[in-house]
Design a protein around this nucleic acid. Structure first.
Length: 575
DNA sequence: GCCGTTTTCGGCCCGACTGTTTTCAGTCG
């Protein structure tokens, strides 16, 4: 059994215990054990004694050992016999948790969606103590909605939805200020719902206006401090709004930005110094005085921490990392973008137009990197057109003295592992990106054969979207990422952090491993149109999530320093 | 079930909302 499967088993034990109505702390102990394993970088075989990890004690360690050695767990098997597996998916129904489901099972013999539906329609559910007519109605409608929407939606979908929601809020709700919170602010790859914190003059009016927004299909909760709405997009999207007084804005924003695990870390720190944290402020347990803060910076500083960017609030080791100043990347550090397309292949603007758009975003340098000839559908460039494009780029570059435009290419690595352009053309380019756009289903050996062609070519500076995944749609090709990170570092090849919210490739999870190895990373937008140049902010957010250091990120370099990086690989390999 | 530079027992992050209740449990984030 590998680590992933083992973690899954522990989580499954927790789920079954929940359905049995077990002690919630016991349940969370299994979840914590799973988490402890997940957050440890080592593989199962590299771990000598899992019980040494915080969060794994005698009981859970025994289960881990048993799973490791026998691939099964007595405890899990027993639970599976005691609790019908058909109940597991019912936990996803809103309003139904372990306790209610346990009761439904014990009292009515409910064991799956169909039997639950039957009991509801027979009117038996409303008769149970603690249940009622409304609960029964809600279950029926939840059962009907089940499967209409995936549990979480990809960030690119939610970013679009958020834009629409925010435009509506700004137009129709009387607000002093508001901010995004939740997993969208943390730049998670998938998002469950949209969260906003609002300061308003008149809460009653604001609540009324919120409920009247276009697209609102349901009001899920409507209280003094919180309004939950369902809006109809392609999928229904839940929007949670917290209404707060100005003085509680920072703490509320922090609280609802999460993550949940991050909040737990902060609250434990508070507790250790005799305080209690809630969305309303920090309470001194002795005096009962509540402190509020003018900003999140001030809030963190109260706990002796530097500002932790939302993306990095994972509830892992960030409260340790940010005790010392951590050189993370911010918008102003970004000096350029090395991956974009023009009308020469499948982009929307000319070279000059694209350069002006980049310049207006404060970039000091960019690279034009159209597709190469293998990508016929994108009107990729052959050798002759590459040479002509180099001339055109030179011409535009000479016209502007406040931005440097490099002549680059996004060259395909063909399925057979050959590069798509002749060496004597590659030599003439300032920068070469290599990409895989075909034969995604090859074996790992075949894919790695192609990767090696790029890694060991003296002309390839960057490997773009290294795993080829599309969030929520495509897994990506079979890459030995560990090897890629190592060899990229060894050969002076940078790996791309593709900022397109459909991709986010490499992922934050992989990027996290690069600091130690020393792999250079370039945050690229891969823009095909001017608005896509704005994706740089998303890429920077992912870099913060991965705790990348400034010095590792090519985008922070001056033009001269960028050039020396690009020339370094050629110099070494051609010597 | 886990954990301890106050603790080997008694806590375990904290609060809002709903629907069920006449003071609170369950669920959710």
């Amino acid at each position: 059994m590998n680590k992933k499967e083992l973690i899954k088993s522990l989580e499954l034990i927790a789920v079954y215990m929940e359905l049995k109505g077990e002690n919630p702390f016991k349940i969370s102990a299994y979840r914590k054990a799973a988490q402890a394993l997940e957050q440890d970088e080592r593989s199962l075989s590299e771990m000598e004694d899992p019980a040494k990890l915080t969060g794994i004690g005698k009981g859970t360690a025994a289960v881990v050992e048993e799973l490791r050695e026998t691939n099964r767990s007595e405890l899990l098997e027993t639970l599976k016999e005691e609790v019908p597996s058909g109940l597991v998916p019912l936990l996803d129904l809103p309003g139904l948790g372990g306790k209610k489901l346990a009761k439904l099972y014990q009292e009515l013999g409910v064991h799956d969606a169909a039997s639950l539906k039957k009991e509801c329609h027979a009117g038996n559910v409303q008769k149970l103590a603690g249940f009622g007519v409304k609960t029964e109605e809600k279950i029926i409608s939840a059962l009907e909605d089940m499967g209409n929407r995936p549990e979480r939606l990809p960030i690119h979908f939610m970013l679009e939805a958020a834009k629409v929601v925010e435009q509506q809020i700004e137009e129709h709700v009387e607000i002093d200020r508001y901010a995004r919170a939740g997993s969208l602010r943390r730049m998670e790859e998938t998002i469950k719902d949209l969260d906003y914190i609002m300061v308003v003059e008149d809460p009653d009016t604001a609540r009324k206006q919120l409920k009247q927004l276009d697209l609102v299909s349901d009001v899920i909760a409507d209280g003094q401090a919180k309004v939950s709405l369902e809006l109809s997009f392609t999928y229904p999207v839940q929007v949670d709004v917290r209404l707060v007084e100005e003085k509680a804005f920072a703490t509320t924003l922090h609280h609802f930005t999460g993550s949940k695990d991050h909040n737990v870390l902060i609250r434990q720190m508070a507790k250790a110094q005799g305080e209690k944290v809630s969305e309303y402020g920090v309470e001194d347990l002795e005096t009962g005085d509540v402190t509020t803060f003018s900003s999140e910076e001030a809030f963190f500083s109260h706990f002796g921490l530097h500002y932790i960017p939302p993306e990095a609030r994972l509830g892992r080791d960030e409260t340790e990392q940010y005790k010392e100043p951590f050189e993370t990347i911010v918008r102003n550090d970004i000096r350029g973008d090395l991956h974009m397309h023009t009308t020469w292949s499948d982009g929307a603007l000319s070279i000059e137009e694209m350069a002006l758009e980049a310049r207006s975003r404060g970039h000091e340098w960019i690279a034009i990197t159209d597709h190469s000839k293998f990508l016929q559908v994108a009107h990729g460039l052959n050798e002759e057109r590459v040479l002509r494009q180099i001339e055109e780029i030179k011409r535009v570059n000479e016209k502007y003295n406040d931005i440097e435009i490099l002549a680059g290419i996004e060259m395909d690595i063909r399925p057979d592992g050959t590069l798509d352009l002749d060496e004597d053309v590659l030599k003439r380019l300032d920068l070469v990106i290599a990409s895989i756009h075909s034969s995604f289903s090859q074996t790992e050996a075949e894919i790695m054969h192609r990767m090696k062609a790029a890694l060991y070519s003296p002309y390839v500076n960057i490997i773009a979207h290294p795993t080829g995944r599309l969030i929520g749609r495509r897994e990506g090709y079979k890459v030995d990422v560990e090897f890629l990170l190592q060899e990229a570092a060894a050969t002076g090849t940078a790996l791309e952090l593709n900022s397109n919210p459909n991709r986010l490739d490499l992922s934050a999870e992989w990027l996290r491993k690069t600091s130690e190895i020393g792999t250079m990373i370039t945050i690229n937008t891969d823009a095909h149109s001017p608005d896509m140049l704005n994706h740089m902010d998303i890429g920077a957010g992912i870099a913060r999530k991965a705790l990348l250091q400034k010095g590792q990120i090519i985008n922070t370099r001056s033009y001269a320093s960028l050039l020396s990086f690009l020339q370094e690989k050629r110099r070494i390999e051609t010597e």
